[in-house]
Design a protein around this nucleic acid. Structure first.
Lengths: 153, 153
DNA sequence: CTGTCAACATTGGCCGTCCCAACGGTATCA
DNA sequence: TGATACCGTTGGGACGGCCAATGTTGACAG
């Protein structure tokens, strides 16, 4: 006859199994590891993303870079300023379209990237330590499919 | 005899398959969905985490809440202030240990939580939309194991 | 009993990621 | 030619995460 007792009558909050919770925690973990690795090099995520995109796809406009790296245009500006100040990239007006800048990675940028690569690999390894090779592939596959579904402007 | 050509000679940067990259993107996606759901209720992640922890484990000290929700003690203070101002929780000194406060969820807090639950479920569904039920379980399992390995203070 | 050490709540501050609105300049195309 | 879309840039804000320092209180060893 008594109403539900005040203690733990709800089974609804299985937060520990909520994917959004797990992803949030995994990101925090991953970000902590990355910050540690990047920090030593005086670099942060945006810098690496931009350099890596330049390395992978060649010179590009800032808008293109932003799309490829999922960085907002305005943040691309700031990050590129910092990279340019260190001589890691070069900004030059696009002769074919005077709205655009052409961003080119400089030798120092490539060098920075190569210095970062092993650090990054180490972070991946540490993050995925508990998983077998097959499971790592699984995880990558599942996350990739999640993101394909993300309809971003 | 020529050195490596300047164009795309590097296969090292498979950023698109880097788990840290995928997790970063997945978090951004998830965070966007959550912000949308929470925003309508004038709540953010910290609020929900704290309320859910209170609902699930009963009254607790602020330090305990922080540990359970992975929120820094100092941020717990601020978030609880906001929750208390809305009458969703109650703060009272612990008679058994005068260093501690005992935080109790109020009926309005439980109500808020119940209002949030379906929204949260919807977010999980949207996020996991591309995955089958089995794959969702897989993903949850893999991420859970990753996090067990995270040695946090 | 006393001194040391640990835990607690709180304040104040910082950084990194993400997102938005608005601006002037430029290209595109009807 | 005029409307529309894109570009780089500026400025601002929200949010999550983290750290250092302070004063109070508890626990525990000597």
């Amino acid at each position: 006859m008594n109403p539900a007792p005040p203690t733990a009558d709800a089974t609804f909050s299985r937060i520990l199994e909520m994917p959004t919770w797990l992803i949030t925690r995994a990101y925090a973990y991953s970000h902590r590891l990355l910050a540690e690795g990047f920090g030593a090099a005086g670099v942060r995520g945006y810098h690496f993303r931009l350099l890596a995109a330049l390395e992978e796809f060649g010179p590009a406009s800032q808008a293109d870079l932003g799309r490829r790296t999922s960085i907002d245009r305005s943040d691309v500006v700031a990050a590129l300023n910092e990279l340019a100040a260190r001589g890691l990239i070069q900004r030059s007006p696009d002769p074919d379209d005077r709205r655009r800048n052409v961003i080119t990675i400089m030798p120092a940028g490539t060098k920075q990237l190569r210095a970062l690569a092993p650090i990054l690999d180490g972070v991946q390894d540490q993050l995925l330590a508990p998983l077998s090779a097959a499971e790592r592939t699984q995880l990558v596959g599942l996350l990739t499919r999640l993101l394909e579904h993300d309809a971003q402007p």
